[in-house]
Design a protein around this nucleic acid. Structure first.
Lengths: 241, 241
DNA sequence: TAGTGGTCTAGACCACACA
DNA sequence: GTGTGGTCTAGACCACTAC
């Protein structure tokens, strides 16, 4: 491969080329990509260089290598969500997948905070969706999701509510948007009356508020999700290194 | 290098050998390790294999590569702490290093939670240290630290209070204990009278409580730190992928 | 048995730091 | 200039999967 753009390392050029195929949807989630030998020939680089290009994509969980089978484009499923994007765990006992119930699905103009976080104009049309999450029958979180109506044009309540899989899987399957990373900001706040009612706690009781912005493969913000969490029996868990 | 232990990959054996030198203190923080070519010869492996052994240690920030200079053993300094282990940021404005003031330094028997988290017996002797952290003159966090008196035998108040650098740097320099990863569990709770007074907020106001366990190179828990954070002007920030 | 990713080699050359 | 890490090559062989 001739060193496209800049003057950086060759493997970075190969990586960008692959990334472009992924971001454009030329290579779809769940799909098997060509073998390393084939790609090495195609891009006219050595097998070592080709592997180095893929290494970082595998680390970022954009591709998944399976010895003997091949390399796949990662797709969002329950396991991935639970493991990488859902950080609420019971204070005692083991982590499990939450039951998600829809509270409402609205179309409205975007609020100031969401507009800023998603990089949209102040009066942009948006979806505002509220879900209630329960673990073992107990309400643990109320999630308020804001999405750009332009970007998620075909979205509607039935499509959203009857999704067969996770929300991120829906974004991926229906809109071709793959969430690859998130930024979370956490605060302790008194529960509003609305949220307290859903969580079955007292108004003003301390709740953990998580503001999460999700980014796609082009590193553009796609979703703002504000989770209001009852931490009397659960907690937020993070490992840092 | 002959494949020590198990039957895993050769580069893992080399990695374990290096790791052992690091954990034992044979290679000290800040020190330059032998060049890749030297190590490759020493372990009788190819340069590629040797680099692969080092790659993961560099990713885990145990070693630091510097082109043209060499590879160093990572040491804890203010920048590293700020970047990797201090996650409190202002809601507006940029992150900065906190001012740390000692509140007290006690010797006492360990409490139930700390014993469990640190894997110690219920009546083990421990240090209990409380600090107040301020950013731009405002109290943002009260940190309650629990340490094993056996493991940190020579520790005393003056040594702790007059440390020239960060707390983790003290652990490293004086006790040869390098913190390589932490686990954090977060909850929203009402502020106790004690903590509220130090944070200059009302008793019972929502505060973010962070329970952090720090692990050393052998992956043994070494410190429990409970941070009680006032999130009216600051927040906890995490990037996830 | 054929095809895939995983490991390993023994070099070469480049980019950078420092004296 | 010398020595370091960073990139790249052109293979070989191993471990695993699926037919």
């Amino acid at each position: 491969m001739t060193n496209t753009m800049d003057g950086g390392p060759l493997y970075k050029s190969v990586q960008r080329a692959l990334m472009e195929q992924l971001a454009s949807g030329e290579l779809k989630p769940g799909q098997l990509i060509p073998s390393e030998r084939q790609l090495a020939t195609e891009y006219a680089v050595s097998i070592g260089t080709l592997r180095k290009a893929i290494d970082e994509l595998v680390e970022n969980r954009i591709l998944i290598r399976q010895q003997g089978k091949g390399t796949y484009v990662a797709s969002h499923d329950r396991e991935r969500l639970l493991f990488y994007f859902f950080h609420i765990v019971p204070q005692v006992g083991i982590k499990s997948y939450p039951l998600v119930e829809a509270v409402f699905f609205h179309k409205s103009t975007i609020d100031t905070e969401a507009a800023q976080r998603l990089g949209l104009a102040l009066s942009a049309p948006s979806f505002h969706i509220r879900n209630k999450l329960s673990v073992e029958g107990k309400a643990v979180s109320v999630d308020d999701i804001t999405l750009d109506q332009i970007r998620f044009e075909k979205l509607n309540a039935p499509l959203f509510k009857e999704r067969p899989n996770t929300i991120y899987n829906l974004y991926q399957e229906v809109f071709g948007i793959t969430v690859v990373r998130t930024e979370e900001r956490l605060r302790a706040e008194p529960a509003s009356e609305e949220h307290a009612k859903l969580l079955k706690i007292k108004t003003g009781a301390p709740v953990l508020v998580i503001r999460r912005v999700a980014f796609d493969m082009r590193d553009e913000p796609v979703e703002l999700r504000i989770s209001t969490v009852n931490t009397t029996e659960h907690e937020y868990f993070a490992e840092l290194l």
